[in-house]
């Protein structure tokens, strides 16, 4: 599904290398988790994959189902099936949540050569998904993320994911700032989307999320590289002992 090879990334305006050779293969139907110390490059990886400005790929490749992601515009990557749940969801005053989501969904469908969804169908779809995430209709009427609490913003990311139904979902610390119940809602939202055709890359600092979303593979990222890969037990080890041992052991 998602195939990253030897990815090297530096900041565009600064001589600062952030990713120093990332190799990662997420198969369809699998959930991979990435953990790692602050500043190790996890968000950078997710931004580079989704096409944010400000980074320069100096080496390596990234492909989604064989298609070169790095050659596409951000909107083309989204239409190809890539989704990033942002670590810091963005507030957009003046743009209604519903308008935003419908425009996004229809733009993706159009790019893929599919018919636009009707207003009625869309309403039904979003109501259905919002209900399961316990997002009330009033919130949907507000401008995108404006006045949302931290937890509401994160739930809104998952709502977008559920509506857009992407093939490859990257979740950047979607669990941080969530209370226990919200965490469970988010996990349920993710689990509901798990199927044989879809891949997940879950960036997190906490084992707790992984209790709810059982990962198939866990990676540890440090200083711009994946330094260790293992099963769910790796997350438990991190939770218990922190990163020092793992980082030390590899160095």
């Amino acid at each position: 599904m998602l195939s990253i090879k030897n990815l090297h990334v530096k900041l565009e305006d600064e001589d600062k290398q952030i990713l120093k050779g990332v190799d990662l293969e997420v198969e369809a139907g699998k959930v991979h988790a990435i953990m790692g110390p602050n500043g190790s490059g996890k968000s950078t990886l997710s931004y580079v994959l989704s096409g944010r400005d400000g980074y320069e790929v100096t080496d390596g490749t990234a492909a989604l189902e064989g298609e070169d992601l790095l050659a596409m515009e951000p909107e083309e990557r989204a239409a190809a099936g890539l989704f990033l749940a942002f670590q810091y969801p963005v507030e957009i005053p003046g743009v209604g949540n519903m308008t935003f989501l419908r425009t996004a969904l229809n733009a993706q469908r159009k790019t893929r050569g599919e018919d636009e969804i009707s207003a009625g169908e869309f309403l039904k779809l979003i109501r259905d998904k919002a209900a399961s995430l316990k997002i009330d209709a009033e919130m949907l009427k507000r401008p995108v993320n404006v006045g949302f609490s931290g937890g509401e913003k994160k739930r809104n990311e998952i709502l977008q994911m559920a509506v857009l139904a992407p093939k490859m979902c990257i979740l950047d610390e979607t669990d941080s700032g969530l209370d226990v119940d919200a965490m469970k809602l988010v996990a349920d939202g993710v689990n509901a989307l798990r199927d044989a055709g879809r891949g997940f890359l879950v960036i997190t600092h906490y084992q707790r999320l992984l209790d709810h979303i059982q990962p198939d593979v866990v990676h540890i990222m440090s200083d711009g590289r994946i330094i260790k890969t293992g099963g769910p037990e790796l997350a438990i080890e991190v939770e218990k002992n922190g990163y020092t041992d793992i980082v030390g052991e590899v160095a």
Partner: peptide, 15 residues
């Protein structure tokens, strides 16, 4: 607002 612009594009809305 470039941040908002990227957020919209990342959801599939053309520039």
């Amino acid at each position: 607002d470039e941040t908002a612009l990227f957020y919209l594009r990342a959801r599939g809305v053309p520039r």
